[in-house]
Nucleic acid binder design. Structure first.
Lengths: 158, 158
DNA sequence: GACGAAATGATATAATATAACACTTCAATA
DNA sequence: TATTGAAGTGTTATATTATATCATTTCGTC
């Protein structure tokens, strides 16, 4: 078994740094401006491996002393989702950092209801199953949402 | 190709009747009361093959002369979702009638962004892929959301 | 430095959802 | 059949999530 969820002792500072670095590259490649506000929001999202809501981000920004309003947060989120630097988890109305923003992928999200952590997986069998099912019914796919709720390995064990 | 979406000329009255009939059976089997309000909401959801939001339902009820408030609608929805008589489409914040409430299934929803229709499919390859992926990472599944947006066969053709 | 496009600020409000408490309905049964 | 208790619904208020609109600022380009 390979646990997708990060170790308890993992060096989270490195997670964030690496994500930021990748994000800068992606933004650059898209001729998009990775502004201060966007960087702040992105960094806040990466503070944990949980999904975070727009208003939690807003509170966090305000706690940092930034005078922000909802539209500011939603704009940053829209930007980041657009570049696939983060993903929106529909069933939580929340956002989650993507750790493979440089390749197009159909991600599936495992969401632990106990610890709140989210892990993204890419699974070719699943992608193929979706494509095949769509093909059979003549459906032209534009976006796919796969969200799986339950207990992560750690939480299921306790 | 088998189009999951109903024919233009299909007898929708029969859809509704059949759904209502099945719903009554399911409710009975669960010792649950299929009250007037719940029946009204259920019937409204089945008025079309589109997903409908809570507030659209509320408006429809009020248009029928029923003096309803949001909690009334949300309670009926909760009841119906609980019995799996309807499904919530997370990415639309909307609800959709299930046409196979009598068997437990992992459904996937094809949502046409042009005509708004939704079709539910059950696909064993996909279910297996989800289970396998979860097994590999030691995740205990409790609920799965699969929503696919794009163009249905009819709309893609035009 | 002037200009225009993009980003952000600011205010207001729309859309979605739930908490809390009062009242009614209904089926079981005393 | 009257009682009663649980389930359902009514009602009011409010929480949560999201967007529209217009003013101002920032920033790269000329």
């Amino acid at each position: 078994m390979t646990d997708l969820f990060p170790d308890k002792g993992h060096d989270h500072g490195r997670c964030i740094d690496s994500a930021l670095h990748q994000a800068e590259i992606v933004a650059e490649a898209n001729n998009a401006r990775f502004t201060n506000m966007r960087r702040r929001v992105f960094t806040l999202i990466w503070q944990s491996h949980k999904a975070i809501t727009a208003y939690e981000l807003l509170d966090a920004l305000q706690a940092e002393g930034v005078r922000a309003q909802p539209p500011t947060v939603y704009r940053a989120l829209e930007f980041l989702v657009g570049l696939r630097l983060i993903h929106r988890i529909e069933s939580l109305n929340a956002y989650f950092g993507c750790d493979m923003p440089d390749c197009e992928h159909l991600g599936q999200y495992f969401i632990c209801r106990n610890c709140g952590r989210v892990a993204e997986a890419v699974n070719e069998d699943m992608s193929r199953a979706v494509r095949t099912a769509a093909g059979i019914v003549g459906f032209k796919i534009e976006a796919t949402t796969i969200e799986i709720k339950g207990l992560c390995h750690d939480c299921a064990a306790h």
